[in-house]
Design a protein around this nucleic acid. Structure first.
Lengths: 147, 147
DNA sequence: ATCTACCCGATCAATTAGATAGAGTTTCGG
DNA sequence: CCGAAACTCTATCTAATTGATCGGGTAGAT
């Protein structure tokens, strides 16, 4: 399960992408039904990671810092929830050896979950906020296809 | 991330499958480096779900109740960790509507994670304990293939 | 009888999730 | 310059979950 926080972060980014320009925290909060103060934290975190930018003061607000077609779900999930990998010994951003595992190559569990991790990353690192906005059909790879 | 508990459960089952017959908790615990009392809980839970059986008294122990080729990773994970789905609204065993989501069909987040869930289940529900025991190569689907 | 090994409920410490609070800082209109 | 609006940041809180331990209970073999 992904955290509620990550879901909120993705929803906020989708809202910003759909709006096409900057929005105030209050607007996003109301439109997406996200607790306002919680959303503040989330957007701040996304800002610190260079995903969004903000303008302070009256008529301030948040806007995307990168094109929506360059922000992947994987990127956002890693910022908010940490590793996507189902086991610490399979994480690329926060690898940790399993303390109770003798040899990594011989680990049956690891072998199976490596496949799960690969296919999850396949989807999450290829799907962008812009992709998710489109009609239910085609996403990622197919988005560049010729009609 | 799957829980430590689920990892222990899978490791215990793999150990039982490899051994080919029943083992005492103490043996599994020592061989797999799993805290003994914690392992008791886990095996008990697996027993309640019909995955393993036990014999009490002197020379007692645990054994697989189903052939290792019929116990899937998905099955074990659902017993120990609950739903595999990354969102409650995508779970088959514990569906819950997202409280903050207006329409399920229009939810961009859901659409993307539905793909992740499908590919995770593809692996986890097709891979059995027996599969994981084999040589690093071939698993699941391919195991019935003609040479 | 009694030793062994499983059965099972209670408890516990540490961490995390989800959220709220509040003081501070920047920016603008007038 | 003033003050309202809006973002910034750190601290704190509560409930739930995780990972684990404890201590007795009960069945079975000798």
């Amino acid at each position: 399960m992904i955290s509620q926080k990550a879901k909120y972060a993705l929803r906020a980014l989708v809202a910003l992408a759909r709006a096409g320009d900057s929005m105030m925290i209050g607007e996003i909060s109301a439109q997406e039904r996200i607790p306002r103060k919680f959303l503040e934290q989330i957007l701040l975190e996304l800002k610190h990671h260079g995903i969004v930018m903000s303008k302070r003061g009256k008529f301030g607000g948040y806007g995307l810092l990168m094109p929506a077609a360059q922000i992947t779900f994987g990127q956002v999930l890693r910022i908010i929830d940490g590793p996507i990998a189902p086991l610490p010994c399979l994480s690329r951003i926060a690898y940790r050896r399993c303390a109770d595992c003798l040899t990594e190559e011989g680990c049956e569990i690891r072998r199976v979950f490596a496949k799960v991790a690969t296919s999850a990353r396949d989807v999450l690192d290829r799907t962008t906020i812009a992709d998710s906005l489109g009609r239910p059909g085609r996403m990622a790879a197919e988005s560049v296809a010729v009609p």
